[in-house]
């Protein structure tokens, strides 16, 4: 490798609160791969698509501000949450394609001495390591192949749809109806990827509060799909999907009329396991669903 890969890390809110294991494992994996992550400590919440429902312009200004801090460091912004990825990349797309809107936003940013330029790329950590580091290289670094596991990839909506936006954020071309990147990452880690109908479907997270039944059925369907495909566990690049799958299996099971509990890992935890990180480094103690299978790995 030439230069060290360095990114501006937008952690999002969840990694600092309800999914601490995700932040831990992100750093653990980055360290194993020799990737430097510079945290955007100034960043605000991306609005999670809900602020956008209330005040779209404010959300644009705030997201543009977040991007400014990646731009001022001259770095690509890397996200570790699908919804952060969506909202930030969509802000970039809207501003880059609409000079008038960009001017309106910059007028506000100027008040605090900032300017959105559009000079930084925004990509999710999953695609950063695939595009910039390489699956082959990850595979070559695997210490403990996950060959004994059937692993069900769960992509999450906001990394694959809308595909036009997403596929302009990274080089890996993902088919939203048949995504493959996470499958390939599983294989690179030595695991067996499981194919099932719900892998590219919605977990319902964003409607959890206002439409709990819909949200629970979606989670239930996803987990049931993975179980029926003989998965040992699921893996996801999105902390919101993870929260839903790891903590809401009870409601989900009730909604779909069967038990759907199963271990769910963050994609960083899976890579970390394969690269030989310890369970503590990967934050497994924070999971609600039991993850004792990791004992078999180490």
């Amino acid at each position: 490798m030439q230069d060290k890969l360095t990114y501006a890390l937008f952690t999002g809110c969840t990694a600092k609160q309800s999914t601490p294991e995700q932040l831990k494992s992100t750093y653990a994996v980055a360290s194993k791969l020799g990737i430097e992550l510079i945290e955007l400590s100034e960043a605000s919440c991306c609005g999670a698509s809900h602020l956008q429902d209330y005040d779209d312009f404010l959300s644009l200004v705030l997201n543009a501000r977040n991007i400014c801090y990646a731009e001022s460091r001259g770095l690509t912004m890397v996200t570790i949450c699908n919804t952060c990825q969506l909202n930030t990349a969509m802000t970039k797309q809207r501003l880059d394609s609409d000079e008038k809107l960009k001017a309106r936003v910059n007028e506000k940013l100027a008040e605090v001495g900032l300017e959105y330029k559009g000079s930084s790329q925004i990509t999710h950590f999953l695609y950063a390591i695939i595009d910039d580091f390489g699956l082959d290289k990850i595979a070559s670094m695997v210490k403990t192949p996950l060959s004994q596991f059937n692993i069900a990839p769960f992509y999450g909506c906001h990394n694959i749809r809308p595909s036009e936006l997403q596929n302009s954020s990274h080089r890996t071309k993902e088919n939203p109806y048949k995504p493959t990147s996470l499958d390939e990452l599983i294989v690179a880690c030595g695991g067996v990827n499981v194919d099932y109908e719900q892998k590219n479907k919605c977990c319902g997270f964003h409607a959890e509060l206002q439409a709990p039944h819909t949200a629970a059925v979606l989670t239930g369907n996803a987990m049931a799909g993975a179980i029926d495909a003989n998965a040992d566990w699921m893996v996801t690049p999105c902390p919101l999907c993870h929260l839903k799958l790891d903590t809401q299996y009870g409601h989900a099971g009730e909604a779909v009329g069967r038990e759907v509990k199963m271990p769910v890992l963050h994609m960083q935890q899976m890579v970390g396991l394969a690269l030989g990180c310890t369970p503590q480094e990967l934050g497994f103690e924070h999971h609600l669903s039991e993850v004792d299978f990791i004992d078999a790995v180490n």
Binding site: A43, C45, G47, A48, H50, L51, D55
Partner: peptide, 22 residues
């Protein structure tokens, strides 16, 4: 209602913490 407060809540949280208070 819960739906509207869910959207508005983001604005209040950001005003207070920058980040979302889950």
């Amino acid at each position: 209602n819960v739906a509207t407060r869910h959207a508005v809540g983001f604005a209040s949280s950001i005003r207070k913490h920058g980040m979302l208070d889950e």
